[in-house]
């Protein structure tokens, strides 16, 4: 079967985990891993697996534009701003895993066919990927006036990028809850827990709704969990949803696939899994266009 070619920029943890996810894709062919440090573990592993491994950054794409139609950017927000321009000039689709948010926010569980016409989409945050689908599921049957999410992750899974700019997480996730989840107003909290052995990522979603309907909400949530499970098999409800007046509380746990990250880092896993799924949606769309 013909596949759409893709490359990863950023050979750090996220980029490397992404490599393992893309390896399994039926519609995407990973061709290259692009970094800036030839000694990075990600580039070494990519080379071992037989992918092109460049350590001259985005220049390698300028030199070899044919290697990819889809480019995942797993660098940093600042770097992506620069990359976004180059990728646009090269006519490449950019899947942005940084907080730069040059393009619209997407969650693959919240299908809006609209995003398939975009050239740069942003994956929000890990907390956003884990909770926004649930907010959307509740909103679609009960109209959410306020949604609040609490993402608790193990300290070990919070990288230096997240730690240096934790406000970016809370603010970006809040925007995602509103723009993609559909809540009139959102709020996001993040908590780092250092317990050993590390805890799995857990998320609590509180929603205040305008049209309370326990049965419909429960059903919608359960369907959404199944949708997310398609690309994050370790995504599950910890309890049945709790109802109290106009409020519904949902507890979710995210166990990672254990590719490059240990399974407790469900927060990192859901980012790479969601990015892969979004790219696959694009790839299928591209392949359909080609066959017409």
């Amino acid at each position: 079967m013909v596949k759409i070619k893709a490359a990863i920029i950023g050979s750090g943890n996220i980029g490397t985990d992404l490599m393992y996810k893309l390896e399994r894709s039926e519609v995407i062919e990973l061709t290259a891993m692009i970094g800036i440090d030839p000694e990075s573990d990600g580039l070494k592993r990519a080379k071992e697996k037989g992918y092109l491994a460049f350590h001259n950054g985005i220049q390698s794409l300028k030199d070899n534009p044919e290697i990819a139609d889809i480019v995942f950017d797993a660098t940093s927000a600042k770097t992506h701003v620069r990359h976004a321009k180059v990728l646009a000039e090269l006519g490449k689709l950019a899947i942005d895993l940084t907080p730069a948010a040059r393009g619209p926010f997407v969650s693959p569980a919240v299908k809006t066919d609209a995003y398939l016409n975009e050239k740069n989409v942003n994956m929000i945050t890990c907390g956003g990927q884990a909770t926004i689908p649930i907010v959307h599921a509740i909103n679609s049957v009960a109209d959410v006036s306020y949604a609040e999410i609490v993402a608790t992750i193990s300290s070990k899974s919070a990288g230096p990028g997240t730690r240096a700019n934790i406000d970016e997480f809370t603010i970006t996730t809040r925007r995602g809850i509103e723009e993609v989840g559909g809540a009139d107003k959102g709020k996001a909290l993040i908590i780092l827990n250092p317990a050993e052995p590390p805890i799995l990522m857990r998320d609590t979603i509180y929603c205040e709704v305008k049209n309370m309907d326990e049965a419909a909400i429960t059903k919608s949530i359960e369907q959404m969990v199944e949708t997310v499970k398609e690309y994050v098999p370790g995504y599950r409800l910890k309890q049945e949803p709790l109802f109290d007046g106009n409020r519904v509380t949902v507890f979710v746990e995210v166990e990672g696939a254990g590719d490059y990250f240990p399974i407790y880092a469900g927060n990192l896993d859901i980012m790479t899994a969601a990015a892969t799924r979004v790219a696959e949606d694009f790839a299928i769309h591209m392949l359909e266009k080609q066959s017409v």
Binding site: I191, L192, A195, T204, Q239
Partner: peptide
């Protein structure tokens, strides 16, 4: 026992329900 830290009030409901 679960080494819950400050701010994890959502664990209270979760643990109580469990």
């Amino acid at each position: 026992k679960r080494k819950v830290v400050g701010g994890q009030e959502d664990m209270i409901l979760d643990v109580a329900a469990e």
